[in-house]
């Protein structure tokens, strides 16, 4: 691409006080963030946190209500079509054309960017290869599996060779195998230097794909950092999960106090946040506690989220 960002700032996306209102409802409440070139940036949060509204503003399809937003150095309010020409969008819901074949879906999408038919054909074949859909090129879209449709949607978003790829919950609803295949494809894009911005409510996805992320809750950003930084800052090295027989957890009262730096009572289990998980287990046993199952694991972004909001990420 020959178009240069008009601002000296090297940030691909620059947001300050970014706000989106729908009537009285505050979807995005004055958030600040920057995304650098080549970075993989994530919005992590539960449904309704404002992730999709933010993505739609970045994608220049939803006008901002207040604040500043610059995408590729330009203002979405005045340069929407130009910005849209340089980004790729993978929406939450596959918006594929079921009246067309797999390859036709790519061809026509390239035409929307003003590409010639020959160029669309060349890129479509390349992208079919990348999305591992070459054998399905002439098939209708409908019989494809969820994972294939998702890969096709990603391939479609790459037809204009975008500087920035926006992915809204790229793997929601996919089985584990399909998710891993998709992560692999996204990882390759990242290796090629494509800047990725994605939303997710899966912490494993955020840990796999994001260099840096913000945690969103109730329209606000509540934490920011790399997955590792966030875990170090808001959780302990290890987490011990204790599961008691039904009805027992409610009777424990003060018996857990002091077993760990922090204790989280969930409806079905108790989480002990202590750097040494085994020591915490030993201490619990020494007090005569008899959990049904014990699991010592490394802490994850889920724990970060729980710490920040007092709730699980995926209910």
């Amino acid at each position: 691409m020959t178009v240069q960002p008009s601002s000296p700032d090297s940030a691909l996306i620059h947001a300050r006080g970014l706000t989106k209102l729908f009537g009285d409802f505050v979807a995005v409440d004055g958030i600040d963030f920057d995304v650098a070139v080549g970075e993989s940036f994530g919005f992590l949060g539960p449904n309704g946190a404002g992730k999709t509204s933010t993505m739609r503003m970045i994608g220049c399809v939803s006008p901002i209500t207040d604040g500043t937003l610059q995408v590729l150095g330009h203002d979405p309010r005045t340069d929407g079509p130009m910005i849209r020409g340089r980004i790729g969008v993978v929406p939450q819901q596959d918006t594929l054309d079921t009246e067309l074949t797999v390859r036709e879906n790519l061809l026509i999408y390239g035409r929307y960017f003003g590409l010639s038919r020959a160029e669309c054909g060349r890129r479509a074949d390349e992208l079919l290869e990348f999305a591992q859909l070459t054998e399905r090129a002439g098939d209708q879209v409908e019989p494809l599996s969820g994972g294939m449709k998702r890969r096709l949607t990603i391939a479609r978003a790459l037809i204009n060779e975008p500087d920035l790829l926006l992915l809204d919950e790229p793997t929601t609803g996919l089985d584990p195998q399909a998710r891993h295949l998709l992560w692999d494809r996204l990882y390759r894009l990242k290796q090629r230097g494509v800047t990725l911005v994605l939303t997710t409510h899966y912490m494993d996805e955020a840990e796999q794909l994001c260099d840096r992320l913000v945690v969103m809750d109730k329209a606000k950003i509540v934490a920011e950092g790399s997955p590792r930084q966030l875990i170090a800052q808001y959780a302990t090295k290890e987490v011990t999960e204790l599961r008691f027989p039904v009805g027992v957890q409610e009777t424990l009262n003060g018996q857990l106090d002091g077993l760990a730096e922090r204790i989280e009572l969930l409806p079905d289990r108790v989480l002990l946040y202590a750097d040494d998980g085994e020591a915490a287990v030993a201490a619990a046993h020494a007090r005569g506690l008899q959990p049904e199952t014990v699991l010592v694991r490394r802490s994850s972004l889920e724990d970060v989220f729980l710490r920040l909001t007092g709730r699980s990420l995926v209910e």
């Binding site: 849209r84 969008v89 479609r156």
Partner: peptide, 14 residues
């Protein structure tokens, strides 16, 4: 239904 116009709207098509 298929939202193909929304897919179009994410491109320079107005």
């Amino acid at each position: 239904w298929q939202k193909t116009f929304h897919a179009m709207y994410a491109t320079p098509v107005s």
